[in-house]
């Protein structure tokens, strides 16, 4: 087996492990019914309707095909699989480095794999710090598996780099951008979970029936907690993103003789940065702006994804010689 084949085998292993983890988390998410049906403050608001909704939302724990203890076991298995998958992904990248003899961020495929790794590490750090309940790994592994699945579509054979990419500044620049993108991916997941839970809470307090898929939100943590977590993740990632953009400007200055040229990649990085700055402001600009803040965060990630995919594939520009 050549180095490239080994790297690919590890990559496939990582995807399989993450998919397995996703399934295990899903079991925990669905069947670990220790939790009361409603979060605390809502139990008061929606007290009258609890009984009917309870019947609608799921069978009582006793009749579940999987016991809560077994479900928690599945969750632990999911976490182990996540660790293994992350290790496999890291090993795949290291193998590529050894095989190509260069740093691993040379094209869009490698970049995407890096983002997935950064996202998974972020997730594992959050779980091990106890900041998030383990069962939410369902959503994190889902997002990361999607990213990895997409990366396959832009797979590029490991090869040498064009001269302009041969600079330690681009290593710094891309590493920071990858780390920021990975962390923001998890931040975006939490922004979405918050919005879903908020919607769910509103339906409950309005006494409206809750149907699939919104009933999934029942087992999410409290909306306020999700919002604060979203904010914290973004606060952590924003300086990294800022630094990544600056490092890119330093590199552009060395390679092309100008630190900022409004190249499409730069334009969209600027837009993403400004949108995230708007998110941070929205959060302190009063009630209604704060309520919209998670949407701005999601918009920010949409811009990041656009910059990663469409700008590379459609616009071209100086950055496109990084190879698809």
């Amino acid at each position: 087996m050549t180095g490239a084949e080994a790297a690919n085998a590890l990559f496939v292993a990582a995807i399989i492990l993450f998919a397995g983890a996703m399934f295990a988390y899903a079991v925990e998410y669905a069947f670990d019914k220790r939790a009361p049906k409603r979060s605390k403050q809502l139990a008061v608001v929606g007290a009258e309707s609890t009984a009917d909704d309870g019947a609608e939302i799921g069978a009582p724990a006793g009749e579940a095909p999987i016991s809560p203890a077994a479900a928690r076991g599945a969750g632990r298995l999911g976490l182990i699989l996540t660790f293994l998958g992350t290790a496999a992904l890291a090993a795949s990248i290291v193998t590529r480095v050894v095989y190509t003899g260069r740093w691993p961020w040379g094209n869009m495929f490698e970049y995407t794999v890096g983002v997935a790794l950064a996202g998974m590490i972020t997730w594992l750090v959050l779980v091990s710090k106890g900041s998030v309940p383990r069962r939410l790994g369902l959503f994190a592994t889902f997002a990361v598996t999607m990213v990895l699945g997409t990366s396959v579509r832009v797979y590029t054979e490991a090869g040498p780099l064009v001269p302009a990419l041969d600079s330690y500044w681009i290593v710094i620049h891309v590493t920071a951008a990858i780390a920021a993108s990975g962390i923001l991916l998890i931040g975006c997941v939490f922004a979405i979970l918050h919005l879903v839970k908020r919607r769910f809470d509103r339906q409950v307090s309005d006494g409206k029936p809750i149907r699939f898929p919104l009933d999934v939100a029942e087992r999410l943590p409290d909306a306020t907690a999700l919002e604060r977590l979203t904010f914290k993740i973004h606060v952590f990632a924003f300086p990294l993103l800022t630094f990544g953009i600056f490092a890119g400007a330093v590199w552009a200055d060395l390679a092309w003789g100008r630190y900022w040229n409004w190249d499409p990649k730069e334009v969209w990085a600027f837009i993403a940065w400004v949108v995230y700055a708007a998110y941070l402001h929205a959060r302190v600009s009063g009630r209604s702006a704060k309520a919209n803040a998670p949407w701005i965060a999601i918009l920010g990630y949409a811009v990041m994804l656009f910059n990663l995919t469409a700008v590379n594939l459609v616009f071209g520009g100086l950055h496109s010689y990084a190879g698809v």
Partner: peptide, 22 residues
């Protein structure tokens, strides 16, 4: 000089930058 205006101007700036890439 209110935060809300800053917020709107930031979003407007992001929007205004787009044509430069198209």
């Amino acid at each position: 000089t209110s935060m809300r205006t800053a917020l709107l101007l930031l979003l407007a700036l992001a929007l205004a930058a787009i044509p430069g890439s198209t």
